[in-house]
Nucleic acid binder design. Structure first.
Lengths: 204, 204
DNA sequence: AGTTTAAGTTACTCATGGGTAACAATATAG
DNA sequence: CTATATTGTTACCCATGAGTAACTTAAACT
């Protein structure tokens, strides 16, 4: 028994270490992609950020595009996780949508998510492109459903939920392109203005 | 006199023809860039679309990036032209903003404009990048001013005009990525939903 | 007419960068 | 303490694609 523990410990450590390194590579890559764009960032650049050489990357990642796919995976899980949280409550549609917006603005400052938002739709492999599209449609569909439910329960104005969901995502995703957490504009003000626009509109 | 006219006519024809061809190249390039992205579109591809060979393009365009710059030029003129129109009236800020939104959604379906929106910020040359940023700031500033004026004259809710202008552009520019004029969703419905969201918000 | 300018072609150069093969070092297992 | 899987390296290959040089054809002006 004692032996078993001693034997399994390093093995777990190994897997964990590997995962940690993969995560770090993803973070480094995502940051570089956001700063310079996918095509202007070479695998050598990414390797350098990680203090390894290019071939080492291929031990963690299938190829360059695979980095984007793995980022998408992370993004998909976080966004769907948020949607799980939001839709778990029995609040009305409007309040659920509001919660989603607040959570999404939080999520959208993460480099991996930003990278995914910016580079989704750039998949070269057609299967990967299809998968990416599907996962995106899935998320959009869930938000659309929240809106639809809100219209039904009377908390949201009657509207074309499809278009509204897309417009909402356009605005929120746009944030990922310019917003920096470190900057002078704080998070609460940003969320406040987004909610002002989305819930009550601009007309006085 | 008769002679003079005969002499100047072909010269004008030449310049006009040249301009026409440049426009066509820009359109072809912009369309290809939108379909496949800037880096996945080679100059050979663009040349082929125009039934010429690659070196011929260099007769009309300085280099690949110059295509983006020329697209930006077209875009800048059209958007600023719209803003000129909109701000020429003495209507209140809200109505001016509404007019701008309607006009912008119209503009945003043009391939050259779409290309510019998608690829702005990808300039490799640092001077070009700076110029691009400045022109974009200029436009954003003008919209911000409209909003500010609206707040002043009481037609728009009190808000952070900087953030709101950015969010508005995020949503509108997002449209350029997915909206096709030919599709089942007609222009009026789209504009209607945008205005619903922006002017009155979703909360019932 | 003949000369010049515009417009276009073929055939290259050359840097970049994704991806791989073969080899080296290090940690884990027995 | 050796055998083996895990990580990593150096040194390459090779496709792609931007940009250019030198040459040809077509149009336009005097």
């Amino acid at each position: 028994m004692n032996k078993k523990i001693e034997l399994s410990k390093p093995a777990l450590n190994r897997k964990a270490k590997r995962q940690t390194k993969l995560d770090a590579i993803l973070r480094h890559a995502a940051k570089a992609f956001m700063e310079n764009g996918y095509y202007k960032t070479s695998l050598d650049d990414i390797a350098k950020l990680h203090n390894v050489t290019k071939p080492t990357l291929y031990y963690y990642v299938k190829n360059k595009e695979d980095i984007l796919i793995k980022c998408e995976d992370v993004a998909s899980k976080r966004i769907n996780g948020l949607l799980d949280e939001v839709t778990a409550t029995d609040e009305n549609g409007f309040l659920q949508l509001k919660k989603f917006i607040v959570g999404y603005v939080e999520i959208v400052t993460d480099d991996i998510i930003r990278c995914h938002i910016r580079h989704r739709g750039q998949r070269e492999n057609s299967d990967a492109r299809e998968a990416s599209l599907n996962m995106h449609r899935g998320i959009e569909h869930r938000v659309r459903e929240i809106i639809r439910q809100g219209v039904k329960d009377g908390s949201i104005k009657s509207c074309n939920s499809t278009i509204i969901a897309i417009l909402l995502f356009d605005a929120l995703n746009g944030i990922s392109a310019w917003y920096r957490n470190e900057g002078e504009l704080n998070h609460e003000d940003l969320v406040g203005q987004v909610l002002l626009l989305v819930t009550d509109g601009l007309r006085k």
